[in-house]
Write a protein that binds this DNA or RNA. Sequence first.
DNA 1: ATGTCGGCATGACGAGCGTCATGTCAAACG
DNA 2: CGTTTGACATGACGCTCGTCATGCCGACAT
Lengths: 213, 213
Amino acid sequence: MATRVERKQASLLRILDAAAARLRTEGLMGAAIGLVMRDAKLTHGAFYSHFANKEELTAAAFRHALANNRTRWTTGPSGEHWPQRLTRLAKRYLTPAHRDDPANGCAFAAVASEAARSPAEFRRVFEAEMIQSLRAICGPTAAPSANPDPNGVDPTRHDEAIALLALCVGGVTLARAVEDGETSARVLAACQAAAARLANPEGATDSATRAVD
Amino acid sequence: MATRVERKQASLLRILDAAAARLRTEGLMGAAIGLVMRDAKLTHGAFYSHFANKEELTAAAFRHALANNRTRWTTGPSGEHWPQRLTRLAKRYLTPAHRDDPANGCAFAAVASEAARSPAEFRRVFEAEMIQSLRAICGPTAAPSANPDPNGVDPTRHDEAIALLALCVGGVTLARAVEDGETSARVLAACQAAAARLANPEGATDSATRAVD
DNA sequence: ATGTCGGCATGACGAGCGTCATGTCAAACG
DNA sequence: CGTTTGACATGACGCTCGTCATGCCGACAT
């Protein structure tokens, strides 16, 4: 049998995995302590050996959910240009597969409207994760931006990334909130088309828009 | 004193107003029966003279919240063209005033991610309201669309309205979910700029894009 | 005037939740 | 080898919520 700290770390990981999954499928307060601990093969009493209260759990689970997905989503083909990256992200995000698998999906879309009503402490966590995801989206591309900011990110690209995130989060959320499958698919398609138009404005001919030669 | 049916109608209206406000500020399950009835100056027992259960209340309150705002948002200046309408809606929606007053704001943004996890019955209500709002957005403009659908709506405009709604809902939700005021304002501004770009693609010169002469 | 109806108040029940006190047992340590 | 530590189980407490049974009392019909 493993050592003590190893067993505790393993327990904590099971708790975080279970909580992250429940947070994305059932929402912020759907990740009830009793249910999370049951998923983690523990009893509810053991919870307070890992966290002081539920707020700490939700914050940690939210961070955990996003940390697991960030690199998986951000890394694209090498030599990727900016408009390509934006359209690729939207094309992958606004998809029936992502819509139908919230347990492994984007945590922003899962808890966005609940986070808006959460105490300031959680909103700070939300904001920090969002900024980190935006920086990951704006991360190094094949063609570095023409006017990089002192801190390394082109503010124009940063704003485009914000709009893309809002469009994607709103898109899957609306697609999940409607009943009819056709309506849902149309929401995804319309947002995907809009994202492509946003990333690659019609008639634009600057170097960043053209494909790699 | 008023007649009996009038008093009941007045009570129902107070209940719906209170529930609609709580639904937008506290979310779907934040509109608890006891609190709503207290806001409506009634006791919790009287609730079941108006609704069979809580599901009926939430559905009715959601419809009530949207019905109150739809015409207020949709009606714009006469002689309004399609791109102008889209930019006007985004400019008004993605605003600090709207962000900071959820009690009178858009119900879609308030409950979107919770609706995604709601039973099919509520999702049907959500879908019906969304379709109705989309048709209101696509409603008659100064320049009717070139290719109107048999049922009266240009499918291209309908898809643009979907994307605009997703961008707006995602935008205010993210703006509400972050703590820092500057970050929040930047989210609103970035989404507003993206909506304008979406409604009025750069370089386009067709008649619908030009201002009224 | 008298009886019926129904909106409303009061009170209670059970379920689910967060939280904590207490006990237990195996691993870590001197 | 004996002691201590701490992760975990058990059980309980208080709170909130949805739901319903019961009773009241004013408005309406006859």
